[in-house]
């Protein structure tokens, strides 16, 4: 009883804070100062048609580097927490037979899902999308493969290679920016090209490709580890 009263009191307090914030909120008619700067100079300085990408990869590229690191740490901690003793491991756990529909659908759809994911991260500087979204789409394809065949093993060697190569390449491109262009993660390493073309915006498509591969590998690794953990004897 006292628990319920406490919960209701706390919710009422937080609701009051939210109500105050809502009351103080006014819809804006013009852009704020920072947004105006990005809108006016983004096309000239970065050359990406999608300004959100310009902010994420170039203006706040260091943030994105930290974000990718956090995802990597998550994958590493999950592998560490779900570590199991080798003698408890059943290599081929008995599973319910996958339905015909899921089995054939996964074979047909998975390549298409991978292709859509790659399209999303290559076109991240032109259309809504980018490395993180594309990586998540690729991981959803891996999830479908795991669902169709629960004993499907993801090769940790391949994942580790893809992940470390793309991570190192991301940092190396950033460091090259210090020497050859204006600063860390400056995208003017390559020519900016024409706004709205596939080969434009300097190194943004290259960086986003590496981010997409890295995020896809990390999320697939998490899914694989969780699926793998179920092979343990209870």
């Amino acid at each position: 009883m006292i628990k319920k009263i406490l919960i209701i009191g706390l919710l009422a307090g937080v609701g009051l804070i939210f109500f105050d914030l809502f009351n103080a909120y006014q819809g804006s008619e013009v852009l704020g100062k920072t947004g105006r700067y990005y809108a006016e100079n983004g096309a000239d300085e970065v050359g990406a048609a999608n300004l959100v990408t310009a902010v994420i990869v170039t203006y706040r590229g260091l943030d994105t580097l930290g974000e990718v690191t956090i995802l990597f740490l998550t994958a590493a901690i999950i592998s560490f927490v779900l570590k199991f003793r080798r003698e408890d491991f059943i290599p081929n756990r008995p599973v319910r037979i996958t339905s015909e529909l899921l089995d054939s659908a996964s074979q047909v759809i998975v390549p298409v899902i991978f292709m859509v994911g790659i399209y999303i991260f290559i076109n991240g500087h032109l259309t809504p999308g980018g490395g993180f979204q594309g990586g998540a789409v690729i991981a959803s394809g891996v999830l479908l493969m795991i669902m169709a065949n629960p004993n499907f093993g993801i090769s940790h060697k391949v994942i580790a290679k893809v992940e470390s190569i793309s991570g190192i390449a991301f940092v190396l491109i950033g460091i090259m920016g210090i020497f050859l262009a204006g600063g860390f993660l400056d995208n003017r390493l390559l020519g900016l090209g024409n706004l709205g073309e596939l080969f434009s915006a300097g190194v943004i498509p290259i960086i986003y490709t590496f981010i997409g591969l890295k995020v896809g590998a990390e999320l697939s690794n998490i899914l694989g580890t969780i699926s793998h953990a179920q092979n343990e004897k209870n």
Binding site: G42, A43, N50, P128, G196
Partner: peptide, 13 residues
């Protein structure tokens, strides 16, 4: 949305 495909960069703001 902040995507400059139809919108020209000069009037983006």
């Amino acid at each position: 949305a902040p995507i400059l495909d139809v919108i020209k960069p000069s009037e983006a703001a």
